[in-house]
Simulated assay, not measured.
Amino acid sequence: MPTSGHECHHECHHMSTDSETRSRYSNPPIIEAICEFYFAPGLEWDPTLPGKLHTNLGDEYPGKPRHQESIEFGVQFRGGSPQNFQFGEGPKKVQLITENEKRIVGIGRDVLSVHMLRPYQDPHDSDKTGWDEFRPRISRALSAYWEVVRPQGVKRVGIRYINKLVVPGEVTTAKEYLNCALPEVDGLPSRLVNLMSQVEYAYRDGVKLALSQGKVEGGFILDIAVIGESDDVLTLEDTGALVDDLRGREREAFEAVITDKARGLFNAA
């Protein structure tokens, strides 16, 4: 877990860049990419802040701002066993959107998120990946938030990629496309009808990776989230370094869990 600027920079310096770790896919499976920041708790929520941020970012997000409400789901454990399912109100956000609603910035109390919906990258520009657009959008949104809100610093950063693998024909098994698929078991039917699973991993430095997979009509969902938290508040510069670090881990995880047959679906260039 990064606890200082020096540690974060040292670790990120050794991470491979996106172009180094994988080929550019001409038809990437990404349906949504999200980068989310949670800031150290500050003063009471100022309802004028979204308007001030819209003034700074309006050229990029000229659509009419809209409100978003979310629901948080949790499980209460007792004696190591789940006892009660809990639903609660999640953080409310105001969303700044582009005219086509494919690029979004969400602003809430002590939280900022940046979203890229499909198409993730320009299909007509083979020299650029979606990250070449996403990373500058993250930087501009974070810098604008820092300028307007003046937070103490960042406590948690998350990078999340939601992918849909569209499979031709009838889907009978996931193992042809995903190395993380559940194994087939002798004595059980071989035809896959439904699938939903989530596992969580922890790196040695405390960064967490959540890997979810599920069967949907026409293929599979592969959802990868990498989350870094800090004991101390991170500066703007350190936060940017952590974003790059988490992105590198997400790409490595993605390439680790897909098979060559899945890569064929994405038309690797």
Rank of each mutant, 00 (worst) to 15 (best):
I162W: 04
I107T: 01
Q121I: 03
L57C: 05
S4F: 08
T21R: 15
P47W: 03
Q121E: 12
S143F: 12
P151N: 05
G169M: 04
N194W: 09
M15L: 13
V257S: 03
E60W: 13
L57K: 03
R191L: 13
G42D: 04
D205M: 07
S81N: 14
T98Q: 05
P2C: 12
N84V: 09
P168S: 05
P119E: 06
G108Y: 01
Q76Y: 08
S113L: 09
V257W: 02
I258F: 07
S212V: 09
S139A: 13
A181R: 06
V154M: 05
A33C: 06
M196L: 15
A253N: 06
L211N: 02
M1D: 11
A33V: 05
L195A: 11
Q213M: 12
G90N: 00
V114P: 04
A202C: 09
L96N: 02
L96D: 01
V167G: 02
T239D: 03
D223F: 00
Y61G: 03
K155H: 11
E89P: 00
A144K: 02
Q213F: 10
G153P: 07
E89Q: 09
T129V: 08
N163M: 02
R251P: 05
D244T: 09
H6E: 15
E44Q: 15
R160V: 00
V171I: 11
K164Y: 05
R135V: 12
H115K: 00
Y61D: 05
L234V: 06
S212Y: 03
K155S: 10
P151S: 02
S16W: 12
K52L: 15
Y145E: 00
S81L: 14
T129R: 11
P183S: 08
I34H: 01
N179T: 08
H6Q: 14
Y61K: 04
A202G: 10
R22T: 09
E147I: 06
F85P: 07
G240C: 12
D18T: 14
I224Y: 01
C8D: 11
G219C: 06
P123S: 08
Q152L: 13
I107V: 06
G218C: 04
R135H: 13
S4V: 09
T98Y: 09
H115R: 00
L242T: 04
V75K: 08
L117G: 03
Q213H: 14
F266I: 00
E252I: 14
H10R: 15
G106T: 00
G106N: 01
K208M: 11
S23T: 13
N100G: 09
G158H: 03
G169F: 07
A33I: 01
E72D: 11
I227E: 02
V185P: 10
H6M: 14
Y61F: 10
I159H: 01
V149R: 07
H115N: 06
G74M: 02
L234M: 13
A144P: 02
